[in-house]
């Protein structure tokens, strides 16, 4: 009894979750290197057969009739909200410490508690000790330190970091950027502030220098933009809203049917 109402509830819950995902994507349409979320929905398994339907099947079989299935689905649920790591567009900023990755790699940072975190956002800065840090002051791993008296920094496509000290015309190599990539990047956990953490589903990170394999190359003086496509998110919003409305209509329709039933005995 009332099964349609439970089914409707699973739908309303799912669409609400999807709306949250869409709003989050839209809010981050201008966040550096933001990766849009995708709500993966899955239709629910059938309920275990009731005694009635088992009995009906047995009777049909005994009478030599084909026992066709009489099962109904039980709704929908969100199975995962994975990230879509499609490359975002690269926008030139001409800031020497803005680095964009064209490819699959991630920068590795060290969190305050010493654990690693991964990011595609390359808006780095130099702190008062000359360390290359992200906007929240987290150091790169391996750390890169810009020596005192540096007049300009050059990051090559392969991740080699060169500096010119005191207007000298000779560049000095001070470090090498290392990128990480994952067997299943969509399985990474988003931990906020543009950072991702490794999970069982993402697998162990593989390290390599830029331009190797599919790690991608570094573009200095540019930033990767958010990969959210505002128009398709708006379309998604309209579709989710329409289905949401239809479900509520179906609920009131079912309710009207129950009222009919109630009033049958006047």
């Amino acid at each position: 009894m009332f099964q349609p109402l439970y089914v409707a509830a699973t739908g309303l819950n799912t669409f609400q979750d999807e709306m949250i995902d869409i709003s989050n994507n839209l809010a981050n349409a201008k966040t550096v290197a933001f990766k849009k979320g995708r709500t993966e929905k899955e239709s629910l398994l059938y309920v275990e057969k009731t005694f009635d339907s088992k009995l009906a099947e047995a009777i049909k079989k005994a009478n030599g009739l084909s026992s066709d299935s009489l099962e109904y689905g039980t709704g929908v649920r969100v199975t995962s909200t994975r990230k879509d790591f499609m490359q975002g567009t690269i926008e030139t900023t001409n800031q020497p410490m803005d680095l964009a990755i064209q490819g699959e790699g991630f920068f590795q940072l060290t969190l305050a508690d010493g654990t690693p975190a991964y990011t595609r956002a390359g808006n780095f800065h130099i702190d008062n000790q000359g360390n290359v840090v992200d906007p929240n002051g987290r150091m790169m791993d391996p750390p890169i330190t810009i020596p005192e008296g540096t007049t300009s920094v050059l990051v090559k496509q392969d991740g080699t970091v060169l500096v010119y000290i005191n207007n000298s015309s000779e560049a000095t190599e001070i470090g090498q950027l290392v990128l990480a990539k994952f067997p299943n990047a969509p399985g990474l956990k988003s931990i906020g502030q543009n950072l991702f953490a490794q999970t069982d589903s993402s697998g162990e990170p593989l390290f390599g220098n830029p331009t190797q394999d599919n790690f991608g190359y570094i573009q200095q003086g540019a930033l990767e933009q958010s990969n959210v496509d505002v128009i398709s998110e708006m379309m998604r919003m309209i579709m989710v809203q329409r289905v949401f409305d239809t479900v509520t209509k179906a609920v009131s329709s079912y309710e009207a049917m129950l009222t009919t039933l109630e009033r049958m005995k006047g």
């Binding site: 239709s43 289905v243 239809t246």
Partner: peptide
């Protein structure tokens, strides 16, 4: 009719699956 509603409701909530 009740059984039809069960199937219909499941169809609607899965219109985006």
């Amino acid at each position: 009719t009740d059984q039809n509603v069960k199937a219909m409701m499941n169809n609607i909530v899965n219109a985006q699956t």
